[in-house]
Amino acid sequence: MLERSHDYIQWLFPLPEASRFNHNAPVLRPEDMAEIKASDAAKANMRRARDRMLDFYKVNDHWLTAFDHNHLRITRIIRCLKLALGTDEARGFHDEIRALVAAAGNPVNAESLSYWRNAAGKSSDPC
């Protein structure tokens, strides 16, 4: 279901910019961000969503190709985690995803890897 549906990721991991793909998705405003950061329940729910998506990527390898729409999802997840939960959370997810990519023989294109690194705040790190 996570692969067939394309409108949930923007709700689970909102960003300050409007989605180009889901015009009904929320846009994360500064007051929304403050509310998330102040709410233990909101942070716990975001961590559960992060864990669910990581589990999805661990048991499915179809995204481990040069180009896949999941690469955009991963960028969104990392960016949202950094904004809402902090750099450590974003980097942790990034590191887990990169380990999956490395274990698959590094099939993901350099541009996607760069987007992930930048989203995690690791722009000076090598792939």
Rank of each mutant, 00 (worst) to 15 (best):
L2P: 07
P14A: 02
E96G: 07
V27S: 05
N106V: 11
S112F: 05
E35Q: 13
D61L: 09
A90M: 03
L113F: 11
N109M: 09
E3K: 09
L100K: 04
A84C: 10
H62P: 14
G86Q: 07
I78K: 05
F56E: 08
I36E: 00
N24Y: 13
N24C: 14
E89V: 06
A119C: 01
L12W: 13
N109P: 07
C127S: 15
D51N: 08
N70I: 14
Y8M: 12
Q10P: 11
L81S: 08
D88H: 12
L2I: 11
D51P: 01
H71M: 09
L64T: 05
I77F: 00
R98A: 13
L83S: 03
F21W: 13
I78P: 06
N109G: 06
R117D: 01
E111G: 11
N106A: 09
G105I: 00
E3R: 11
Y57L: 03
L81H: 02
L12I: 15
S112L: 04
R47C: 01
S114D: 10
L72H: 15
A103M: 03
F13K: 00
W116I: 03
N22D: 13
D40Q: 12
L15F: 05
V101K: 06
L15R: 03
Y57N: 04
A66Y: 14
N60W: 00
A90F: 02
R47I: 02
R48T: 08
N60P: 08
L12M: 13
V108C: 03
F56Y: 07
K37I: 09
Y57R: 03
